[in-house]
Design a protein around this nucleic acid. Structure first.
Lengths: 130, 130
DNA sequence: ATAGTTGTAGTAACCATTACTATTATTGAT
DNA sequence: ATCAATAATAGTAATGGTTACTACAACTAT
């Protein structure tokens, strides 16, 4: 038996293209709505399966913000995320990754640290009172 | 109408005591199992309601590690968490909080950053190959 | 004691996600 | 281009963590 090859699929390509084109960090359901404009009878299961596959392949990133449902990001370059406590919006932060905290963590841990995820919290521009 | 006062409850106290006594970051279900040893017919709903209440009051911390279910931490002092990619264990990291990254984030963001959550990933001592 | 209010146990409902299955699309060889 | 092999899909059912609901019990102040 050989390893299962991944075949091309229009639906998967459409999902990927949409995630590449937006900076909105949509949920699976939002992606489903959007892709349905192109493939009206795509199944929600297909969306979930392809999101999992693309995440596994490193083509996209899954964000678990703790609001009950996962979000997805088509920008795989290392960057931080900000989550608004008021409106829940997820926004990219344009700042340099702080590399050395992995090193610090490793020095304080009996095991092997190879990465970290940081979410910043607060109020976004729309939600900050004047 | 006056604001609803919070009354004492043995079940809530037991949940809090258990979380104070462990460093295991248990899930709601694990907490349910444990508290049932003391109150055999406590309801799972009661556990969830009190975990939400204690979190809201700042008595405990809710951890959304992205593994499908939330975990809870009775240690409210600022500290980092490590999540093992292999066994999923959540372990406290004994290192100083890096305060200035909030300042850096604020300088790069059009809004107000007031905190951050960082999860470190890798392999724990048991899962690191020799 | 009693009325008023908060908390609980038990159960049903919810909702994001996953699993299942018959059918369709893609691929590589003829 | 046709064909067989196999991966992917659509549609639907099932799962599992969490929340909502309701009748009853416990606490508090008058």
């Amino acid at each position: 038996m050989t390893a299962a090859a991944t075949k091309y699929s229009r639906q998967r390509e459409c999902i990927k293209e949409y995630l590449r084109s937006t900076r909105e960090h949509p949920t699976a359901d939002t992606i489903y709505m959007k892709v349905r404009e192109v493939y009206p009878n795509i199944s929600l299961g297909t969306v979930y399966r392809n999101l999992a596959l693309l995440t596994e392949q490193g083509e996209i990133i899954k964000l678990s913000c703790g609001d009950g449902c996962d979000r997805f990001d088509g920008n795989t370059a290392p960057h931080y995320h900000f989550i608004c406590r008021q409106c829940g919006r997820v926004i990219d932060l344009d700042m340099e990754p702080i590399e050395h905290i992995n090193t610090i963590a490793n020095a304080h841990f009996n095991g092997r640290v190879d990465g970290n995820i940081t979410y910043f919290y607060g109020l976004c521009r729309e939600c900050v009172p004047d």
